[in-house]
């Protein structure tokens, strides 16, 4: 688009962020179409942020109706929306956030079938799947990879949250933070990402004790064991009755990944209990944080500035900390 087309309104509205990431980044965002699948708390926050930032177009897919529990983290819905399609209820409120963004809704999940998904993905610049199960994420990731589209997945389980991304071979510009502070130059970097199915086979052998510790492996394996559990049982854990199975699943994954045994041999019982009790629930502060991190990373990727997540972020609402592991990435 011609820069001259940046209207007074756009300049005024985006002033504070253009001062951060520059007008070219803003331009790239404006030209981007983003596909977001499933409208739960994480997506609500993510969408709010990328729409405010000024992406070009949002395509939002969700087949389900608004339930009462959705009002807990879904601020695009109000009481009267219970029973309506989520996307129908949310559309006007999303458009209201920023009239400069186009919003298209798809009220069914047929679009995720292999054939449909390919044609949809061809028309977008980036795919973001939220609160979805692992096995399907692997399938959708592989399709995106084949079509060379950047892929994000994110979601929350109670107080825990995650973001995974496969950005293929992503080029970006970033200040070289390894050089002295006052002599930093911009460098162009290319990062090679792994698809989720490879990332899940990651082994931690190469990391020192300190490096391992820093990455908070307990949170990582709590998420991975939830995914494993869900894949095996076709549901999330529902409470005390699932604690034992979840613990065994988690510990098997830990030992299988060759995590430094001085740091972690078993995922702490308290964490497993917390996860087993709260996994199906979503909590507004956690959604805000994970959705904030997810949206920021999508914007960074679109702008091709600053290093994006590489490639698996976990957030722990017990401490407020987040760490990023490079799963099967150099």
């Amino acid at each position: 688009m011609d820069p001259a087309e940046f209207t007074e309104e756009e300049q005024g509205r985006y002033d504070r962020q253009i001062r951060l990431w520059g007008i070219e980044a803003q331009q790239r965002m404006r030209n981007a179409t983003i596909l977001v699948v499933k409208l739960k708390g994480t997506a609500t926050e993510t969408i709010k942020n990328i729409v405010l930032a000024g992406i070009g177009k949002l395509i939002l897919v969700d087949a389900d109706d608004v339930e009462e529990v959705d009002l807990g983290a879904g601020f695009f819905f109000c009481d009267d929306d219970v029973g309506k399609k989520r996307v129908d209820a949310a559309k006007a409120r999303i458009e209201n956030l920023n009239p400069l963004v186009t919003v298209e809704i798809v009220p069914n999940f047929d679009v995720l079938d292999n054939q449909n998904f390919e044609s949809t993905v061809n028309g977008v610049d980036l795919v973001c799947i939220t609160d979805w199960d692992r096995d399907d994420l692997i399938r959708l990731n592989n399709i995106c990879r084949r079509l060379r589209k950047p892929f994000y997945a994110g979601g929350t389980y109670g107080l825990l949250g995650y973001i995974f991304c496969d950005l293929l071979d992503h080029k970006y510009i970033s200040p070289d933070r390894s050089s002295p502070k006052d002599a930093q130059k911009n460098v162009q970097v290319t990062a090679s990402y792994s698809p989720l199915q490879d990332a899940l086979r990651h082994r931690w052998s190469a990391l020192s004790k300190r490096q391992t510790k820093e990455l908070k492996p307990a949170s990582v394996f709590a998420i991975l064991s939830l995914w494993q559990f869900q894949s095996a049982r076709n549901r999330l854990p529902l409470g005390t009755q699932d604690i034992e199975e979840l613990q065994q699943t988690a510990d098997a994954l830990v030992s299988g990944a060759d995590v430094n045994r001085q740091v972690l041999t078993t995922v702490p019982r308290s964490l497993i209990e917390s996860v087993a009790m709260t996994a199906p629930h979503e909590f507004s502060p956690v959604c805000a944080i994970v959705g904030g991190l997810l949206a920021q990373d999508i914007l960074k990727t679109l702008a091709a500035r600053e290093p994006p997540i590489a490639n698996f972020l976990t957030f722990d609402g017990n401490t407020g900390g987040a760490s990023v592991c490079r799963l099967s990435m150099p």
């Binding site: 504070r16 709010k48 930032a53 502060p285 956690v286 904030g292 914007l299």
Partner: peptide
């Protein structure tokens, strides 16, 4: 001071926690 929605959203979530 440059300001963006995402940072504010993250910080707000952390404040509540």
């Amino acid at each position: 001071i440059p300001a963006i929605a995402t940072t504010n959203a993250i910080i707000a979530g952390l404040i509540v926690l």
